[in-house]
Write a protein that binds this DNA or RNA. Structure first.
Lengths: 214, 214
DNA sequence: TGTAATCTTTACCAATCGGTAAAATTATTA
DNA sequence: TAATAATTTTACCGATTGGTAAAGATTACA
């Protein structure tokens, strides 16, 4: 018996490549058809391999989905975590919006995967929402409220501010087809996101400047 | 042969009741599991009848879904249509937000049905998006731009303003479980929506007041 | 190079899917 | 009330679903 335990043997090159190909294909399918709307055959096709071959790497459909969700959640909360309590409030909010918008632009499938999951009642991420997510939002809400108290920005409900930032930024990934339909297909993705960034800056930053009456 | 054609015979009481029960059940299932994620058996169960009996009223799964989408689109654009070019700009925008928020509160399943459809590439509503919806948004965008030009409100990209209103209001229906997870289950639905309305008023109305620099 | 481990293919399976046929039942109306 | 139309049930079908068994091909390594 080797020193290396059977359960933890090193991953092969082929294994690494194929698992990545499968996850890529699975993300593509799950994010557009949802979990139940995606078949293993579709994923296998998209990954360019047979279904039994795919099932050699992931024993169930659920295993693929779980891993994708897990990976997603790893990065999902980072932009909010980076919001610095000691920074300039409006600048911090502006940067947060920018980071979220960049995520929507660069990882639209991940955003849609998450949206699908939430829409369907969040059966697989409920714990994270009520745990990690809630704690983080509570923490940042306190910071925002304190900024308001100190007159560094307008007083406002920090929870709904955060919801609004989530909603407006993720909208460009989740409702992409609608945005394209309204703006016309000829408008480039880059242009769309620049315009969106400019508008959201204006809306949130101007809208949250400390006003005299508070 | 009766004067009444075979194709257009009057709907019976039973027919009317059962079709309504079925659509109610179908809306419930489609809005949380999506089209492919919902089975006819599930709908039949939820409607309290057997599958063949259900299929007597709707010959295919698609027929139910199409009718629900059709009904939805009937009312979906009304709030934006009601925006009055001759009204007070900020008041009109405030009212529009209010109406959209009320729809999210009162018809969350319809909102999620729509969200599911868009997320999955809008295969069944593409025409409406590129047709009716786009025309309506173009029209209202002109109005908003004119308001800006006249100095009645801040100059801003009207398309992204509309997207932001859609995103923030529908968020409370589509991402309901996340909102509840963060705010805690003990907060009542009424309270949530009142807080949201207050915040969105502040964000959009304060954020879009005509500023000196324009 | 031989061999053990890894990877892929072929052939399959029970359960579930959307949907149908037709008999049995219930409601309507002449 | 008799006949007709509308509704419901029972029994079923072929296709697709997620997943398995096991033989065959390939790869890594001592």
């Amino acid at each position: 018996m080797k020193a290396r335990a059977a359960r933890t043997r090193r991953r092969t090159r082929i294994q690494e490549e194929n698992e990545e190909r499968i996850l890529e294909a699975a993300l593509e399918m799950f994010s557009t058809h949802g979990f139940r709307g995606t078949t293993i055959d579709q994923i296998a096709d998209a990954a360019g391999m047979s279904k039994p071959n795919l099932l050699y790497y992931f024993r169930t459909k659920d295993a693929m989905h779980r891993l994708l969700i897990e990976r997603l959640l790893d990065n999902w909360l980072d932009p909010l975590r980076e919001m610095n309590p000691d920074g300039n409030p409006l600048q911090e909010i502006r940067s947060y919006i920018r980071r979220k918008l960049e995520m929507a632009r660069d990882f639209p499938r991940e955003s849609r995967l998450f949206a699908n999951e939430i829409l369907q009642g969040a059966p697989r991420v409920e714990d994270v929402l009520k745990g990690e997510l809630r704690e983080l939002v509570d923490e940042k809400a306190k910071v925002i409220r304190e900024w308001g108290r100190q007159g560094k920005m307008a007083k406002c409900d920090p929870y709904h501010l955060i919801f609004s930032i989530w909603a407006t930024t993720q909208h460009y990934a989740d409702f992409d087809v609608q945005v394209r339909a309204v703006l016309g297909e000829n408008m480039s993705g880059e242009g769309r996101f620049e315009d969106a960034a400019r508008f959201l800056d204006q809306l949130f930053v101007d809208g949250l400047k400390a006003s005299g009456k508070n």
